[in-house]
Design a protein around this nucleic acid. Structure first.
Lengths: 148, 148
DNA sequence: AAAAATAATTAGATATATCTAACTAAATTA
DNA sequence: TAATTTAGTTAGATATATCTAATTATTTTT
């Protein structure tokens, strides 16, 4: 009952999804949609972007991001700060709750990592990490050619 | 620049998401929502469930699944077959296009697996698979206790 | 300073995802 | 057979995610 790599990936990715859903349910973030969560993660990554930058980042119209940000503001996940340089521009910041939401993915990866190496010896862990580093290198190297 | 397991997971999961999005865009399935894709995957896994079973599987109301299935039918992704035993019951089947949609995840895992082992020797591959099998066992074993 | 460009908002449209409640048709039970 | 239960649909409500077009406030260019 040895699994091949595809089946292993399947199990890991599927478990990740389930665990992520559980973490969301267990937190006070139950009613965040996937788009909203994505938006929050992007705000985190982009470090307080303007609405226009965010809209570009999410590939949606400025009007759409404006509405979305309104809703996230009502839910106390973000707040807007008007720029001093250009008073037309607003920058989006995460609140405490927003930051918690943004860290869901990171936390998830941490927990999965722990689970994956739970029953391993130190040397097994080391070998696994060396090999996976190699894997990830191939993955990144080939990313560009993936699209076809 | 050796990455730890958490960073590796991060890269793999992130690449998976991007690749999945690309595969969706490149197919004729651009306008499928994530809920619709999830629904189709579930239909595939459950093997022609009734609407009630599907609704339970997705944890939504029967009325909601009815509407959703209507839309998927209009898009030619599924079709309904009235049961001979019980003529109140309809079973949902995937069309050719529906099956294509359902296999997006599987295809994705196959491609990622290929990429991950692209630059490895056979023996490296073997070791990786043995170790990851161990990982997956821990993962499954601990799944129950994850929720807290 | 007047004209043009830019950032964000608002209005109005369409599609989706949900819900509860009411309804129809069919099957089961008493 | 009459009453009850069950499967699915329909109607009507609310929330989200999008869009384009029009509007407002500011900034930049001429």
């Amino acid at each position: 009952m040895q699994k091949n790599l595809e089946q292993i990936l399947n199990t890991i990715l599927h478990s990740s999804e389930i665990l992520e859903e559980k973490m969301k349910q267990d937190s006070d973030l139950k009613d965040l949609t996937s788009r909203q969560l994505y938006c929050i993660e992007l705000i985190n990554k982009m470090e307080n972007p303007s609405l226009t930058e965010l809209a570009d980042g999410m590939s949606i119209a400025k009007a759409s991001i404006s509405v979305m940000i309104d809703r996230l503001e009502k839910k106390k996940l973000i707040y807007k700060v008007t720029s001093d340089n250009d008073r037309r521009t607003a920058h989006v910041h995460l609140t405490e709750i927003g930051m918690k939401a943004a860290s869901i993915h990171t936390d998830l990866h941490k927990r999965i990592s722990e689970l994956l190496t739970k029953d391993m010896t130190e040397s097994e862990k080391e070998i696994l990490i060396v090999l996976l580093n190699k894997s990830v290198k191939s993955l990144i190297k080939n990313k560009m050619q993936i699209s076809n």
